[in-house]
Simulated scan of single mutants.
Amino acid sequence: MLKKISGYSLVCLLSCLFTYNAYAQNAKPDVLTPFNAKYKVSKGRLNLGTAKRQLSQIGENRYTFSYFSDLSLLILSDHRRETSELTIQNNLVTPIRYLFKREGTGSDKSTTLEFTKNAVIDSENEKTLDIADGIHWFDEVSYQLQLKLDLAAGKTEMSYYLVNHKKRDKLYVFKVVAEEVLEVPAGKINTVKLQRIREDDSDRLTEFWLAPDLGYLLVRIRQERGGSEVADAQLEKFVFTPL
């Protein structure tokens, strides 16, 4: 049997919700404030689906940073989940474990990487990857948190060595190219715009917009190939969940 909510209880409930929403809208979160964010993903006028990003604190200086996507086009589908468990000391992100899982059209794939001081290990095959020594390696998710920390520290050019879900080593280079007021489904937001810099003669373009007033939350990411749009993810809604 449903319990009737008194007028007083309803007022208290609404007051709590207002207080929480007021924090989300008015407070100035920093890069490490836990959050949940949802994005609308499109290609031109086609709606491809949704993506989500989530930062959670699981201990002292210990976090999980996750990405989820649920995309489809006609009879094709792609569902992904990536999670990096990591630590942060002196504004340096150090990954501990990276999980990748992809399901949908075609073959399902998964990867689990363990990061130690001197090696990156393919846990599923119990094999140490053949990558260079003496480099601070990131995975495909943890470098994005390091990028946010570096932007907050005032950097305008950043580079990161990472191991991707295909277990290949990569160098990603980014540069701040503009400041823009961007209008997305979540509203009008002040952003800094970055581009990924590729040394090869690539026809690919990747652009990012992040919001300084929201702890450098990702607001939009857009990709082109050969002058044609591949995907455009725009922030739809978000909430900060401080401890």
Rank of each mutant, 00 (worst) to 15 (best):
A27K: 15
E124I: 15
P34A: 09
K117Y: 07
I96M: 13
K52G: 13
R80S: 07
E126K: 12
K109P: 10
A24E: 10
H79D: 15
A37G: 08
K101P: 03
T64C: 06
L129A: 05
K52L: 14
S77R: 14
R102M: 14
K101D: 09
Q57F: 08
L32N: 05
D139Q: 05
E103N: 08
S107K: 15
T116Q: 09
T116L: 05
A51K: 01
N26K: 14
S123G: 08
T111H: 00
K127W: 07
R97G: 06
P29G: 14
D78T: 09
E60C: 06
P34S: 05
N47G: 10
L48K: 09
N90R: 09
V31I: 12
L55W: 02
F115S: 01
I96H: 07
Y39R: 02
S56F: 06
S84N: 01
Q57N: 09
S56K: 15
K117A: 15
K117Q: 15
A132E: 08
Q89F: 10
R102L: 14
K40F: 05
L145S: 06
L32W: 01
S66F: 01
N91S: 14
L99H: 12
T87R: 03
L113H: 00
G59C: 10
E85C: 03
T33V: 07
L55M: 07
H136K: 13
Q146I: 03
S110Q: 15
T112H: 11
N90T: 07
T64S: 04
S123H: 07
I135S: 01
E140G: 13
P29C: 13
D139L: 00
H79K: 14
R45N: 12
N125D: 06
K117H: 09
I58A: 02
R81H: 13
